[in-house]
Design a protein around this nucleic acid. Structure first.
Lengths: 327, 327
DNA sequence: CTGAAAGCGCTTACAG
DNA sequence: CTGAAAGCGCTTACAG
């Protein structure tokens, strides 16, 4: 069934039917009701693709996800997706996925070139972000989940810097003298933010004369072993892990070496995700409302698509969950 | 730039340009080359939406995901998505996501009613599957990842029954006399399949007179505690966990009660996923190539969309990984 | 308030 | 081998 069928059936023009549906343009209340009733009764629903072609829109949003293994497995992206999907859906949009790696953004390019999306949401930002560059260059509206140096970009993020600072301070408050930080690729903006928070905490307590060790770019679990070894020989008392995957590795290594947590080593982490769920001891960590992050990002993008002027930067909060892995 | 611009620029008709691009219809080799070169030089790429409208296609595939928490978090779906996304992309299709729960499939309905997808891939099947019913009724081609009773449906799955049987036999081979099985909702076909495999293994060794305990519909981690308690009082020697989330719960509970694995309790699980990665002791489990599952499903769907007749049932294999959680 | 007509960017019989 | 024209299912100036 098309708009034409309805028009013929009701003895009105397609224009009229279109107006009744869209609510745009003047139309008699009688006629409007008649059309709407017919549509309701016959379960008509308009072809969004045709509508899109006429309006030069697709009603699709691109969600760009990292396609690297390990990373895509983090529960973060799925939770994000739930948030995005919900608000998109509620506004009549669908979400289309593009998986990209740092140097291979072909899926995103295709989606854009084929004019399949009206805008995009980036779910992880790099310091030098190929998808972001590409979208900017091609004037595709987007919002970035995660910080970015690009002052033009609309971004929404949790306050990772403050969060990491808070996490570090918890340990400093407990009187530790030697502290280690373990993180993933420093190509991610989020890694940098957390490092800044860590450093800020130490700086504030410069008087305590804390000794700190920083290990970044830790990607594979096998690297963790050597790092923990070094940490132990240097008599570090606590470890700040930048993500739950790394934290899981650290916990196992400690367990293997029979280093008890928190007695001989305190451990804190981010995300409070399923990766650490049910692990003993429970890990003191930050909790972000990731679904809210997705929702917010999607709302912003939708507003941008409406032509609205939106805030360039939205910072969402965090919660600290104190558990048994700290004294 | 549109097909019309190119036609004007080259002094040919839109028909000709269209033919050069699609490769359909007779066209002079000279002209064809000339058009293609122009396109190449000017980075033209056709508007897939317009093409779709003319051909009554969308070049979108719907991926339907469970929107329940906990479940969507399983790494399974992301790996699946990578597989699907890759082959879809390679064939000029995009993937659009629909999150559904057992009784709320509005997102999928919208995608179908709005004519946004050409077909769908279900990533988890229930015994009474609302999305499947809906798609069948509306004649939307789909393939189901996971078994189904519907003989009409195209399905692809790992051989969960054999896998669970193999896993159980490993334990029986080690001489256990009392064995427990813990699984999630029996609304999932996969839960049933595994139960069948478990029972088949016991049946084959009926002579051994094994005592077995079965706990299904275990959804929340808090339920696990009572179950493990019962298991312990009944002096069960080993536990087969139907997924890694449950296994994680079981391991923690055992650890808390200072029951050593594998000495006092052997444990096996499915998936070998990141949820159990880096846990000690490493868990003996099944390994499925989930990305391959996604790829296969997508290939099948694409063939169906081409009008090809495809095999109704594809069963993929599995690997058994023996680790330290079994003696 | 309503409609005829052109248009969105393609495809595809049909005719030549 | 090539093109004019109609069509896919909508929207939207423009005219009345």
């Amino acid at each position: 069934m098309t708009i034409g069928d309805i028009a013929r059936e009701l003895g009105v023009s397609k224009t009229t039917v279109s107006r009744a549906i869209s609510g745009k343009g003047r139309i008699g209340e009688q006629t409007r009701r008649r059309v709407l009733e017919y549509i309701e009764a016959h379960h008509y629903s308009p072809n969004v693709v045709a509508k899109g072609l006429a309006q030069n829109k697709t009603f699709n949003l691109g969600m760009v996800l990292p396609g690297d293994y390990n990373i895509v497995e983090l529960p973060f992206f799925q939770k994000c997706m739930m948030g995005i999907s919900r608000v998109a859906s509620a506004q009549g949009y669908d979400v289309l996925i593009s998986m990209v790696t740092a140097d291979h953004i072909a899926q995103l390019e295709r989606a854009v070139e084929n004019r399949k999306i009206d805008g995009a949401i980036l779910t992880r930002t790099l310091t030098d972000d190929a998808p972001m560059r590409y979208l900017s260059k091609n004037k595709v509206p987007f919002v970035a989940i995660g910080g970015t140096e690009d002052a033009q970009a609309v971004q929404v993020d949790n306050d990772h810097k403050s969060a990491c600072r808070a996490l570090t301070e918890i340990l400093l408050d407990r009187g530790v003298k030697r502290i280690a930080l373990i993180g993933g690729s420093d190509g991610y903006v989020v890694t940098k933010k957390r490092l800044q928070g860590f450093e800020a905490a130490l700086e504030k307590r410069a008087d305590l004369d804390i000794e700190s060790l920083v290990f970044l770019n830790v990607i594979h679990s096998r690297e963790v072993d050597a790092i923990v070894e070094e940490i132990l020989t240097k008599q570090v008392e606590c470890i700040v892990c930048m993500d739950d995957f790394l934290c899981g590795c650290v916990l196992s290594t400690l367990q293997q070496r029979r280093i008890t947590v928190p007695e001989r080593m305190q451990v804190v982490s981010f995300y409070d995700s399923s990766i650490l769920a049910n692990r003993l001891p429970a890990v003191t960590s930050i909790r972000f409302d990731v679904e809210e992050l997705g929702r917010k990002a999607c709302e912003l993008l939708l507003r941008v698509l409406e032509g609205e002027e939106v805030e360039r930067r939205t910072l969402l909060g965090y919660e600290v969950c104190i558990r048994e892995s700290t004294k």
